[in-house]
Design a protein around this nucleic acid. Sequence first.
DNA 1: GTCGAACTACGATGAATCTCGTACTATGGA
DNA 2: TCCATAGTACGAGATTCATCGTAGTTCGAC
Lengths: 102, 102
Amino acid sequence: MSDELVHPGRDEIRIEAVLHALADPVRLHLVREMDRIGVGVACGTIELPVTKSTRTHHLRTLREAGVIWLRKEGTSRIGTVRRDDLDARYPGLLSAILTAES
Amino acid sequence: MSDELVHPGRDEIRIEAVLHALADPVRLHLVREMDRIGVGVACGTIELPVTKSTRTHHLRTLREAGVIWLRKEGTSRIGTVRRDDLDARYPGLLSAILTAES
DNA sequence: GTCGAACTACGATGAATCTCGTACTATGGA
DNA sequence: TCCATAGTACGAGATTCATCGTAGTTCGAC
């Protein structure tokens, strides 16, 4: 029972996975909120029009794509956008997406 | 029959649609080739590991997302990346995606 | 006109996925 | 210990979508 959640390394992040992860409105909203609030965000506090299990599904998709870090803290999950890694791999990508009005 | 293909206007382009369109490996390859060759590209000349009808499907997805222009020229279709519109709407996005190695 | 080349339209199929509900685990407080 | 809260696991239903084959259209060459 490795208690830690699995994340891809910086070099394992694939552009297709990142784009697919951010192409969903719910996930895009999650990432925008995490980025806006900064530092670590208790993922459960971000309002979403979906149930808990769907939220879990989206958070896993973002984590596995390498878009966010997720760590456990008590019964909560703290999420952080992997800005450093994404900026290193794809300079300008994250800013372009997050600042896009839509 | 309106002979011209329908494209979204610059202000109708949605970020989710653009990300979804570029998240597919086949479509990403198409756009990268169009961008590399520049000007107008006869879409049929770009090698792809799919059939003609699948190619048509992907080109329509890219067109409807606002990623490329498609115009008819004889029996061929000429494609051009909508760099101006995409740069205006989402500065830096296209460059970040197209220059990404992987 | 006839033929082939390039492409589209349409339907089918199988895979991915978004969503949910239920059941379960884990943490922390009374 | 008991219980509420936060989250996960699992399966199911519905939708989307990538792919293909076949049939049809359009265009240019002969």
